[in-house]
Design a protein around this nucleic acid. Structure first.
Lengths: 147, 147
DNA sequence: CAAGATTGACGAATCAATCTTT
DNA sequence: AAAGATTGATTCGTCAATCTTG
């Protein structure tokens, strides 16, 4: 047995906490702005992008997601008029995507709401010491597992 | 703007770390034992259960999952012979589920492997102080968001 | 009717395979 | 051929609606 009961309890607790937090934020985003947190990430990336447009590969790189995930998501978002293909040479082909007017509107509204929720449910619950430790852990973990 | 750039970076980093860790463990479980971490949770719950059987509602309660999630998952697991309905009065109705021989075998093997991976990718990367803070945060968060 | 369980529909995520351009 | 992007299949997770049994 490599993990004792206390460690299992700790692990279960961590998994549960993480899940509850993410779900809470996701629900709020859906309820208040009609988008998922994945869609939010796309909108944010586009808002921040110079020229407000990115190619699928760039989004994939920036978010560290599979290209196919980006592609599927963009298709759904396009059909809901949040995002539009930009200057594609060939039809049915996306060399870049940008925000629609609607998309920009939703994005701006969602940023405030979502930021507020993250503050409320995450930052405001942390003491400075806790925050430091968790930031440290996040950085280490990404460093170790990414790539 | 409720969140500054440093806070966004922190948040993004946390989300990414959490995702990478969970994905890593999930992949290993799939690769080495052919099950997902959700299925692992079910198997564990059944292993630990007195009498080695539980009803859908009990599993739902123990894992803090939607009943429908449990139900869907059990259906898939049943078709792969990991789990079997137990003494159901009516056909197509599950009043309880238990482990099959196969399920018990997979469960035992997976516990060791998975525990090892959790140790390697989580516990071993934490200093005692970090562990204390993260445990604290998990407990607080579950307390705050659950129910 | 109320509690327990299931079903169907849909969005999210991953993987493997394919298609398009250069 | 290689890089960029899409597609289809499959599993996971959620929500709403329905069915079953006490």
């Amino acid at each position: 047995m490599t993990l004792g009961p206390a460690e299992w309890a700790f692990w279960d607790s961590w998994v549960r906490a993480q899940r509850l937090l993410v779900r809470e934020l996701d629900r709020a985003l859906q309820r208040d702005h009609g988008i998922s947190k994945a869609e939010f990430s796309i909108l944010m990336a586009l808002l921040r992008a110079p020229g407000r447009q990115l190619r699928v590969g760039e989004l994939s790189e920036a978010l560290d997601w599979e290209k196919s995930r980006v592609s599927h998501l963009l298709t759904r978002m396009e059909s809901r008029d949040l995002v539009e293909p930009v200057e594609s040479g060939a039809p049915g082909r996306r060399t870049g995507v940008g925000l629609t007017t609607q998309g920009r509107r939703v994005a701006r509204a969602a940023v405030r709401g979502h930021a507020g929720n993250i503050r409320r449910h995450f930052f405001d619950t942390l003491t400075p010491e806790q925050a430091a430790v968790i930031r440290e852990w996040s950085t280490q973990t990404v460093e170790r597992l990414d790539v």
